[in-house]
Every structure is written in C-alpha cells, then in structure tokens.
Amino acid sequence: MINIKLNVNGKDYSLEIEEDKRLIDVLREDLRFTGVKEGCSEGECGACSVIMDGRIVNSCLVMAVQANGSSIVTVEGLVKDGELDPVQRAFIEKGATQCGYCTPGFIMAARAFLNRAKDPTREEIREAISGNLCRCTGYNKIVDAIEEAYRYEKGI
C-alpha cells in the first residue's frame, strides 16, 4: 500500500492505495467518478480520458502513483454551479452523443483542446479528438458540437 494525494474536480484527496493501481482505478473505484469509462485498457479508445494538470491523458495508461500530487478534471467536474460546460451543452444540442460510452472522453479531449484553441478549423478539431474512438456517431456530429462549443464560448 502507498499514500498518494490527488486533487480531483477541485477537491483534495489523500488516499491509501495498492501500488499497482492505475489512475482510472482510483478515480472509478476509490473515488467513484464513474464518468471515466474503460473501453480498451491500452490507450486506444480514449474513453478514459481525463485532464491531468491541464493535459489530456488516458487514465488507463497512467499509474496512480505517477499522478501523485496532480490535479485531475473528470467529466463530473465540468458542471459548475449547476451550469453545464459549453462543450456539454453543444454535445446535447448537436446530437453528438448516442450510446454515450465514448462521450465523457470526447468531452474532456474537446475541453482540453478548446482551452487553448484559436479559431479552430475542422481539421484541427479532428486532430484534437484523434485519440478517441466512437463506434456510434460517425464523428461528424462530434466535430459539429466542438465547433458549436467554441462559438458559445466566444459568444459568436
């Protein structure tokens, strides 16, 4: 067992965990942020994507000890004072979620991207979500939603 400290969605946690746990295990099992999904366990599908210290990571590929001391944002952390994040609103508006299993991962990838993006092209948006797989939507509506979210944020 080993002690780690994490800030998740703005709250500090101090945890005693088994050394071989991955970040996804701690988030899902210990802290019950079950919005973090596991689709492949090997970095292919992006369903487990979370923002770690401002960067998008596959939480199935990060050992929990590697995340020690870091700040994590999961999809549960995007709702602020009952208000949806613009990315979440746009995903609803544009019909960018179907079965929903890939959705938290895409939303986190989009959030991390839009935090830095300036007038993103569709090509750049595609690049930003290239680490995420969706088997249902065919991607176009997801790209539409991310464009829309950018417009919401810029008020255009």
Binding site: G35, V36, V75, Q88, I92, G95, T97
Partner: peptide, 13 residues
C-alpha cells in the same frame, strides 16, 4: 431539433 432524453446524463457522466 429534438434533444435525446438521455443526453444530459450522458454528457455529465
């Protein structure tokens, strides 16, 4: 344009 009934739950985890 109709929103899915379950979209809110799906985008919030």
């Amino acid at each position: 344009n109709i929103h899915r009934v379950d979209a809110f739950k799906k985008v919030t985890g």
